[in-house]
Computed example of a mutant assay.
Amino acid sequence: MLQKLMLSCLCLTFNWAYSQSLTTLPSGGNKRATVSEQVGLTDITIHYSRPAVKGREGRIWGQLVYEGFGDLGFGNSKGAPWRAGANENTTISFSNPVTIEGQPLAAGTYGFFIAYKPDECTLVFSKNHSSWGSYYYDATEDALRVKVKPQSLDQSVERLQYIFSNQTESAATISLSWEKLSIPFKVETNYVNDQLNIFRQELRTEKGFAWQGWQQAAQWCLQHNTNLEQALLWSDSATGKSFGGDQQFVTWSNRSQILEKLGKSNEAAQAIEKGLAFAGMNDMHQYARSLLQQKKTKEAIAIYKANFKKFPGTYTTLMGMARAASAEGDYKTALKYAQQALPLVTEINIRNSMLGIIEKLKAGKDIN
């Protein structure tokens, strides 16, 4: 009895020791890899293992990577897709909700599989991301399936890789490439919604105790022409006395533009009037230029003249007067101001640009 007990303990000890294997390279030389990109404000991360072709050109797709859903002869899955890599599960994570090929997918981490076919591949995003490979794949755990077209490659890719391409402000294409085949799929994020949510969260922190944060949020909405009613409320805080934004030209200018887009022209005019009291030379110059772009010539000329009166004899205000005269069609007066501004320029590119402006005025052409 004692001998049996000792033998049993010895076996347990041996099994425990054997299970504590030392660290080595991944089996089969399949390199572990991680690729991560931010698309919009969404972090996308893929963890996978990279098998190599190893001289098996022409025997990867449809052979090593079997077609469709197969019985791997191990585990409890009788219809398993390819693991989209080697060894452990390939996983893909999204920090915010996304759409894959136009279909919605919640934020989270997913096991990523591919059912390969020469003309059409099925991408599978599984709620189970912790199993080994696809031996225990269960279709009832699918969060999303989408179909995409594989694409042929001119050059062979030795080791399987995932790459991000065709990136925009809110979207990207992710492609699995191996041997002479690429399987791409488009990921889109709701960048505007994600950004607005971040603003709402951060303005409740210490970042909401200064006018700059409220101004940034309101200005972003103006630039993207979205959420303007909320932007106006954020502008209330940006121009409020509590944080000093009531004495900043930029906050009033931004508020004026929001009001204008909301069709509140009278309030917009009142807001910019308040802001001009705090405007610096460059503020006034850029505001006048924006008025010219909006074809508000009379208002622009008035600002150029006020700026010249406040900051006489500078390059900026002399050029402002040149633009004002040119807008009125008085090219002779415009030329006079431009020639006065020229000696004040030292930077070679600006000087060359000024010489071009002077030539245009001599030819009787508008410089605006």
Score class of each variant (00 low, 15 high):
L5M: 11
M6W: 10
L12E: 09
L22E: 09
T23L: 09
T24E: 00
P26W: 03
K31V: 10
R32P: 15
E37G: 05
G40M: 09
G40Q: 07
G40F: 05
I44N: 07
I44C: 14
I44H: 02
H47G: 07
S49T: 15
P51V: 05
E57I: 07
E57V: 06
R59Y: 05
G62F: 06
G62M: 10
L64G: 09
L64V: 13
Y66A: 14
E67Y: 03
G75M: 06
N76H: 13
A80N: 10
W82Q: 06
W82A: 08
A86Y: 03
N96A: 11
I100K: 06
Q103P: 15
A106C: 14
Y110D: 13
Y110I: 05
G111P: 01
F112T: 10
A115I: 12
K117A: 13
D119T: 15
E120L: 15
T122R: 01
S126A: 11
K127L: 14
N128M: 11
H129W: 12
S130Y: 14
W132Y: 15
W132E: 09
A139Y: 02
T140I: 00
A143D: 11
A143M: 11
V146L: 15
P150G: 05
Q155R: 01
S156A: 01
V157M: 06
V157A: 09
L160E: 06
Q161F: 08
Y162R: 09
F164D: 09
Q167W: 01
Q167L: 05
T168I: 07
T173I: 14
S175A: 13
L176S: 08
W178Q: 04
I183Q: 02
K186D: 10
V187R: 04
N190E: 06
Y191H: 14
V192S: 12
D194A: 08
D194H: 06
Q195S: 09
F199D: 14
R200H: 10
R200T: 08
L203A: 08
R204T: 14
E206K: 11
K207C: 08
F209C: 12
A218K: 00
L222I: 00
L222K: 08
L232I: 08
L232V: 08
T239G: 14
G244N: 05
G244F: 04
G245L: 15
Q247V: 09
Q248C: 14
T251V: 01
T251F: 10
S253E: 14
S265G: 12
K274V: 06
A279C: 03
M284R: 12
H285E: 11
Q294F: 07
T297E: 00
E299N: 00
A302Y: 04
A302L: 07
I303P: 01
K305Y: 02
F308K: 03
T314R: 02
M319P: 06
G320K: 00
R323L: 02
A324R: 01
S326L: 10
S326P: 02
S326Y: 04
L335W: 11
A338E: 00
A338P: 09
Q339T: 05
Q339L: 12
Q340R: 08
A341S: 11
P343H: 03
T346L: 11
N349T: 04
N352A: 13
S353H: 12
M354D: 04
M354E: 09
I358K: 02
K360Q: 12
A363R: 08
K365Q: 12
D366L: 05
I367D: 04
